[in-house]
């Protein structure tokens, strides 16, 4: 009887020891040992196997992903494939916020020749096509810009729209003159606050001698502001016609003051000045 009791005590002690081992290891969990800053870290690194890990496949220490880096941590756990850790999102954001191009496959950042996009914007507004690889504005008929340059070097006028070099000398133009001004003011409730807007249109006239002749154009400027005057809660639901959104089969009902077309709906809520 005594022997049986001793055996029972021994068995209990062995079981208790076996369960206590992982708990001790747990204290070390999340304590960083080594870290690989690249997602290209080896996926099958030889790790010291700890026989105390209860779950099959777990090792102590093991590899975990942390912000794109493969990190070795104490404690039992399944090791990740380091190749799946991705990139550091901190590096990614630094790249993007500085105007770079982030490649999430190679975890690399590339700053082009036009990080602010100002050259591209100017090119497109002039009707060109932006070649980001060569940082060049392509106007179609003169892709290299050589014709334009040759024309200007000869003291002639280059027409970007038609890609022609006029035979006459460069036109002499007078100062541009503001000949028209239209201003539209309005307000509306943006779902929360009243917003006051002004759209201004400036029409200019410029006289040029020679073949250029006079020219006239309009520029616009708009701005909106809010004093924080609350006008109602939350923007509400859609403009009606839920099926319109799903099927693309749209309708418009002026009598009800609701209009859905293609995949947009709006309420005919009028605002006067």
């Amino acid at each position: 009887m005594k022997r049986a009791g001793l055996l029972l005590v021994l068995i209990t002690l062995v079981i208790w020891l076996a369960h206590a081992a992982p708990a001790e290891a747990g204290i070390e969990v999340n304590k960083q040992l080594t870290a690989s800053t690249s997602n290209l870290a080896p996926s099958a690194v030889a790790l010291p196997q700890n026989s105390c890990c209860v779950n099959p496949g777990d090792t102590d220490p093991h590899w975990e992903c942390f912000d794109g880096a493969c990190v070795q941590v104490y404690g039992c756990g399944q090791s990740v494939n380091c190749a799946t850790c991705g990139c550091s999102s901190t590096d990614e954001w630094v790249c993007i916020s500085n105007g770079g191009y982030w490649d999430s496959v190679t975890c690399s950042c590339e700053y082009g020749c036009d990080p602010t996009g100002s050259q591209e914007s100017a090119c497109i507004s002039q009707g060109g096509y932006w070649d980001s690889f060569n940082c060049f504005c392509n106007y179609g008929c003169d892709p290299t810009g050589s014709q334009r340059q040759a024309c200007l070097n000869a003291g002639r006028q280059w027409d970007q729209a038609t890609c022609t070099c006029t035979q006459t000398d460069v036109c002499v133009c007078e100062e541009e003159e503001l000949v028209g001004y239209d201003e539209y003011t309005y307000y509306y409730c943006d779902g929360y606050y009243y917003v006051y807007c002004t759209d201004a249109y400036y029409t200019y006239y410029q006289y040029c001698d020679g073949t250029c002749g006079p020219r006239q154009w309009t520029e616009s400027d708009s701005y909106c502001y809010s004093y924080g005057e609350y006008c109602g809660g939350g923007g509400g639901g859609g403009g009606g016609g839920g099926s319109c959104w799903d099927t693309g089969d749209c309708w418009c009902d002026d009598w009800w003051g609701i209009c859905c077309e293609y995949d947009y709906c709006y309420e005919m809520e009028f605002y006067a000045e």
Binding site: Y186, Y188, G235, G237, Y266, E267, Y271
Partner: peptide, 24 residues
Amino acid sequence: VTLYDKAKKAGGKLVVTYKPNRGT
């Protein structure tokens, strides 16, 4: 009825608000 028609009918200036659907 075009926006132009509606703006003309409204006295030359039309301001409408647009509420997108929140069905989903």
